[in-house]
């Protein structure tokens, strides 16, 4: 089935019944989303805003109260949709007695990877997630970052067209988070669609093409990252080797031309960038 959309959500509403009286709690309120194929799509919002519920409904793990969802043109929760989707839940937990390779092999079999392609599919997933060496160790010995990476490997082992990642960098140090960011970009380069749910806004900004922000179950903003972040009423001029005199002259020239609220300062790199620069070469393996 051909469609330009990886996910289409129309009028999605989800109510939970709470307490003995069965009071209604609306987790998702008339949500409409259209996620194009081949992009990294960020789904953002504070805790309890309905992101995870939305993802679970998309995956068919929770039934919607109302609304229509399709994945790659197939109704969500169908075998056709799920065989084309990979999912990494938040803080994943796997059977500790299995090795990483056995786990990925297990999920590959559940995903219907053909016997003849099984080994190469497992190898490719382990390689992409930089888990080839650690793949022969039992999962009980893995660090949090490695658990996330092996979780990512199980999500992509059947080469899904759509990969849904719920907080893939939660509890992972900046080096591990950057590695996961790199893997996301590699998956996009392979033509996959990635839906990323994360609180690491810096990373979302770096890797996502589009973002949607949810609050109290509703969509409050949606668009291309560069469009939604751009402040059209301000400009930035960056220069090196600028003397104090040149600075003053530039400021005077700007004022003379009607510019207001001028700020001349040194640009800052992010703490994340500084950290990664300082611990360069350190690997979580």
């Amino acid at each position: 089935m051909s469609t330009s959309l990886a996910i289409s959500v129309q009028g999605l509403t989800k109510d939970f019944r709470v307490g003995l009286a069965g009071h209604k709690l609306r987790a998702v309120d008339n949500l409409n989303l259209e996620i194009p194929r081949g992009q990294v799509y960020g789904l953002l919002g504070p805790n309890g805003c309905g992101k995870s519920t939305t993802l679970k409904i998309i995956l068919g793990l929770v039934a919607p109260t109302a609304g229509k969802i399709s994945i790659l043109g197939f109704p969500s929760a169908t075998r056709e949709a799920r065989s084309r989707t990979g999912f990494l839940p938040e803080a994943p937990y796997f059977h500790k007695f299995l090795t990483g390779r056995e786990l990925v092999n297990y999920y590959a079999r559940l995903s219907g990877v053909e016997e003849t392609k099984l080994k190469s599919a497992v190898d490719a997933a382990l390689e992409l997630t930089a888990m080839t060496e650690a793949g022969n160790r039992t999962i009980g010995t893995y660090s949090k970052g490695m658990l996330q990476r092996i979780g990512l490997a199980q999500a992509i082992v059947h080469e899904p067209e759509l990969v849904i990642l719920d907080e893939p960098t939660a509890g992972v140090d900046p080096v591990g988070a950057a590695a996961i960011g790199k893997m996301i970009l590699e998956m996009r380069a392979q033509g996959r669609t990635i839906v990323l749910c994360s609180h690491l806004l810096g990373q979302v900004e770096q890797v996502c093409d589009r973002v949607a922000i949810m609050d109290k179950g509703r969509l409050v903003l949606e668009g291309r990252v560069d469009e939604v972040l751009a402040r059209r009423d301000r400009q930035v001029i960056s220069a090196s080797h600028l003397t104090d005199a040149a600075c003053a002259a530039a400021e005077a020239a700007l004022i003379a031309n009607g510019a207001k609220d001028i700020v001349i300062t040194h640009p800052r790199r992010s703490l994340d960038e500084l950290f990664r620069e300082l611990v360069k070469g350190s690997r979580d393996a």
């Binding site: 068919g60 793990l61 799920r82 065989s83 839940p89 994943p92 937990y93 796997f94 979780g151």
Partner: peptide, 14 residues
């Protein structure tokens, strides 16, 4: 409770 069912049932497993 360990949420392994999430990853399992997100696969084409009935």
């Amino acid at each position: 409770e360990n949420r392994t069912a999430l990853t399992l049932l997100a696969k084409p497993v009935g």
